[in-house]
Simulated assay, not measured.
Amino acid sequence: MRFTLVLLVLMALGGLAWVRLAPSDPGRWHVNPLTARDPGSPNFARIPPGEIVTAEDPATLAARIDAALLAMPRVTRLAGEPKGGFVTYIARSRLLGFPDYVTVRTLAADRGATFAALSRARFGASDFGVNAARMQALRDALE
């Protein structure tokens, strides 16, 4: 019985270590939010192009989005650069370090610039609304 308990604890710790240390393949997560399909589980959120339109050029909007996302806790860049208008970020949960991936693509619009964003979880079937809250925080930061 004791061996089984120790084994279960070690397996749980190994799983938590995998969540935190698993490599993030840009080839898998750096996807165009304009064409990427919705994940099979409800742990994602989007901002569609045209929802937010600014009078600035796409490069300036991309820099503002980059600053807003990097100002959020535990967010780092995974792939792309703001000046290219296509960037993927990793946002990790506070306690266990679960990764979420946020991909943003800025575009020219009739009156300036707009963007598309997709925020999704890597693990699990529920994110407790974290991705939707992150997209709302991005909206708020840009207003």
Rank of each mutant, 00 (worst) to 15 (best):
F86D: 04
G14N: 04
R122D: 07
F3E: 09
P33H: 12
R37M: 08
A68H: 10
A117L: 09
G15D: 02
D140K: 05
L118P: 00
L69N: 06
R94A: 10
A117N: 01
E143T: 11
G124T: 06
K83L: 13
R105E: 03
V75G: 04
F44L: 08
G112K: 05
R20N: 07
V87L: 12
A67M: 09
A62V: 04
P58S: 05
A141N: 01
F128Q: 15
L142S: 01
K83H: 13
R134C: 08
F128L: 15
A71G: 10
V104W: 02
R37Y: 08
L142C: 03
T114W: 02
L34P: 01
A62S: 14
R139I: 07
P23N: 15
P48Q: 08
T114R: 02
R37G: 14
A121I: 04
T106H: 07
I47G: 00
V9F: 11
V102Y: 04
D66E: 12
A125W: 13
R92D: 03
T114L: 00
P42W: 15
D110F: 07
R134G: 07
L10D: 00
D140M: 03
F128P: 14
P42E: 14
L10E: 01
F86Y: 07
G112M: 04
Q136E: 08
V6W: 06
L138Y: 00
L142P: 00
T88H: 02
T60R: 11
A68N: 09
T4M: 13
L107N: 06
V6G: 07
R94N: 06
A133H: 12
G85W: 05
M135C: 03
P42Q: 15
A132I: 06
P73E: 07
W18P: 05
D25Y: 15
P33M: 13
A121W: 01
F128H: 15
R139C: 05
A137W: 10
L69R: 08
L21G: 11
L95I: 15
F115H: 00
D57F: 04
P23I: 15
M72Y: 07
M72D: 07
H30V: 14
P49K: 05
G15F: 02
L107M: 13
F44D: 04
V87I: 14
L95M: 13
R77Q: 10
